[in-house]
């Protein structure tokens, strides 16, 4: 079977959106010192160990989920805790001992684990990365989970930050630290329609997750093309 045959020619899903949250609140504000995180639901001893990426993710997750007692989660990030990984590789290269905190929290499911522990919620948690299409696939994963059990909401959390300097050649134009969360539930206040086709045009450039923000804020329809798929939403 050829590789092309296993990619659906057209994907179209309808996603019920109950709530959402974005950090930073005002995308036009240039990146500055990380502040304004609401992380009181995480105990101080744990909080001090969190990376900026995890803080962003857990901030939007907490704001978006509000008082919903139990949620399944899909935590997604294209690059994950790459800054921690590079720091550790640098330590190894210098034959220095590794930070146990950095090691323990460098895994892709770090945010998902902390969120689950802090909320004492043992609902299923998924940690996902799918290259430049990560955000779209996170929505698809959450959609499938909601389909399998429509009664329980699913929270999608996406966070990324620019690549460490050593990978600058592979960085994405316009990238900046950002996080967004979308709560999927059949008690939704609005629906998102998301389609994906095999891409036939040149990649849009830029982060898929950032391209999606205008829909969250104003309901603006949009599209984003990567090397594999073109995604459209309204």
């Amino acid at each position: 079977m050829s590789k092309a045959a296993i990619i659906p020619t057209q994907l179209s899903i309808r996603v019920p959106v109950l709530n959402w949250a974005v950090w930073p609140h005002d995308a036009s504000v240039p990146e500055g010192p990380a502040h304004g995180f609401e992380l009181q639901y995480i105990d101080a001893m744990t909080r001090r160990r969190l990376s900026n990426l995890t803080r962003m993710a857990l901030h939007v997750a907490g704001v978006c989920v509000g008082k919903t007692p139990r949620v399944r989660t899909v935590f997604a990030s294209r690059h994950g805790e790459l800054h921690r990984t590079v720091d550790m590789l640098t330590s190894l290269a210098h034959a220095e001992p590794l930070s146990p905190t950095a090691f323990g929290l460098s895994v892709h499911n770090a945010s998902a684990g902390i969120f689950s522990i802090a909320r004492r919620d043992r609902s299923s948690a998924t940690a996902l990365a799918a290259g430049e299409d990560t955000f779209g696939y996170a929505l698809l994963e959450a959609h499938v989970q909601l389909r399998s059990d429509p009664a329980a909401p699913v929270l999608v959390v996406y966070a990324d930050e620019p690549l460490p300097q050593v990978y600058a050649a592979r960085s994405c134009a316009g990238d900046r630290p950002h996080a967004l969360a979308v709560l999927l539930s059949h008690e939704a206040v609005r629906d998102l329609t998301l389609t994906a086709n095999r891409s036939t045009e040149a990649p849009s450039g830029g982060m898929q997750s950032l391209a999606f923000l205008p829909w969250l804020a104003q309901g603006e329809s949009g599209s984003w093309t990567g090397h594999r798929h073109t995604w459209r939403w309204h």
Binding site: R49, E96, P97, L98, S99, P100, T101, G104
Partner: peptide, 13 residues
């Protein structure tokens, strides 16, 4: 205990 390990690393460095 994680702090103990972390502090050990910092002191060694």
């Amino acid at each position: 205990s994680i702090d103990a390990l972390e502090l050990g690393v910092a002191l060694r460095k």
